[in-house]
Structures are given as C-alpha cells and as structure tokens.
Amino acid sequence: MTLDRSVSSKSRILILGIGNTLLGDEGVGVAVIDHLKTLGNIPGDVELLDGGTGSMVLLEPMREARRMILVDATADGSPPGTIHRLVPRFSTDFPPSLTAHDIGLRDLLDTFYLLGETPEVVLYAISIRFPQEINFGLSAEAAAAVPRVADQIRLELGF
C-alpha cells in the first residue's frame, strides 16, 4: 500500500498477488507482482500490491479499488503452470483449493463480499504441484507461468 495516491479512492485498479513465498510455488502470485514491477510502465491508476500472507489488512486496498485482479496459486490438479482466468461473484465461487499459505483467505473473501459494494473481480489462478516444500523460490513450471500471467494482465488492462 502506498500512501500518497494521486488517484482518488474507488477509481483505482488493484492488482493483488497473494501467497507464501516461504512455501515454494505458493508464492507465485507475489512473483507476478514483482515481475510487473520490473517491467515498469504502470499506469497511474493501477496499484500493484504484494499481498504476501496478509489477511484482513488487505480489506482496505480491496475495498478502495473499482476493479481488482487477484493472482494466486491453486492446487486444482491441473498440470503445474496452468493458468485459469475466473470471474467469481461471491466468496463461494473461488476454487476451494486456492492454496492456504497461512493467509485467512476464505475469511478475507467472506468479509469482502459481506461488506458489499465489491468491485469487479478477476482471478488468475496458477496451478501448482501439491503439496509444496518449505523453500524460497519457484519451480521451473511456476516460473514460466509468471511472465505469461503478467502479459495477460497487461493485455487485459491495456498497458
């Protein structure tokens, strides 16, 4: 979260990557944010947020966005590195296997939808192998998915 936002509340687009970087590929969502930062050229109304293992503290940036792109790992049994784009309407629409990475993600999503006035949400779910080892760094499959997801997001948002 940056403090001085040149763009006022509810007009920003939030790109939120979440995951536990201490658990190998579970950190792939955060890696996408880092990659987008490296590429640069981010429009003024787009906020990149490394959500890490943050839980309820993420409510504030999520509630203040008009549109949100969430990037997370999922253990859905698809080949590692598979990318799915989903448009959930409620917390119950999220894949149950969105990885846990110590984040109270289900609680976060429940309260996010309960509070209402939710922005448009798009979820990029990246399939990972399950379970993951305690390790810092990505597998080859997850690492290969990172620029692909970043490119799709850039295409979707036109930057």
């Binding site: 110590d102 399950f130 379970p131």
Partner: peptide, 21 residues
C-alpha cells in the same frame, strides 16, 4: 496455527502430511 505450514487438498479439506525434501 498460522506460523504453521498448513495445506489443503483439492476438496478444501486439510491434510496432515507435508512433504519435505
């Protein structure tokens, strides 16, 4: 137990065994 490492199986149920190399 969040300083814990915990993982979920694809049905959202928690599993108890974690693999380590």
């Amino acid at each position: 137990i969040a300083c814990a490492v915990h993982l979920y199986d694809p049905e959202g149920k928690q599993v108890h065994q974690i693999q380590f190399s």
